[in-house]
Amino acid sequence: MINAVSKNRYFIFRRTIQIGLLLLFGGANWWGWKIVNGDYSAAYVLEWFYLADPHAVLQTFLAGFVLSSDAIFGGIIVLSFYALIAGRSFCSWVCPVNLITDTATTARKKWQLTKKEGFLGISRKTRFWVLGLGLILSAVVGVAAFEVVNPITMLHRGVIFGFGMGWTAIAAIFLFDLFVVEHGWCGHVCPLGAFYTLTGRFALIKIKHNSDKCTLCGKCFAVCPEKQVLNIIGKKSGFIRGACTDCGRCVEVCEDKALKFSIDNYKNIGVKNNE
């Protein structure tokens, strides 16, 4: 039992934060709590200051509207937190869509759908094109282009304010990840993940690999949602950079203690890492 908990310690921690945040945001609407009002687009914290999604702020700016200072400062706070400290951890520690896509991946593995890959192949780099396209379209169409179709906030708003027909978008993502592309949405398409991948390049918190301890068992590859970031495993010691979401699954499964959470020392940061 204790072993099971320690084998899933980050997983339990992540789910606690993800669901706890949903509860805090939901409680604001259901029971009138005043801890965090709003959703992941923008939030009013303790009726004191605002947080905002920097990607949404950027799109709105490109769409031709200068937001008021509350949203701009809120965006800067969030951006600074992820850019300086937490990297791309939004994706696996906060984002509610992660609950959906992780479930899809688990089901995919259980039903062994993974082996039938090649049905539709798309590049992991697609998300960067989606990110760029969304920013260009925001300027062309004159509306925050990703926000009008954003399934992350659609799911979050759905939980807090009610789904309406919005659950269909969430079902679409689940089915896409289950049947079409493994880690399809989060690992290939989502522009917010791409955004935080780019901004999180110099973040402090990184996973550190000690190649001397590694026995090449390959367990980390089996659980990692962004396998390409593990290209240094067993080859050289260093920090896992790029599209890593700091989910910590590899740290949990590693029995050689060759992987652990650490603080980046920025050595070899220029070396191209797989995003």
Binding site: N29, G38, D39, S41
Partner: peptide, 13 residues
Amino acid sequence: TKACIRCGICVEA
């Protein structure tokens, strides 16, 4: 539609 960041804080208020 450009300006609204779709946060729902007004709805909760």
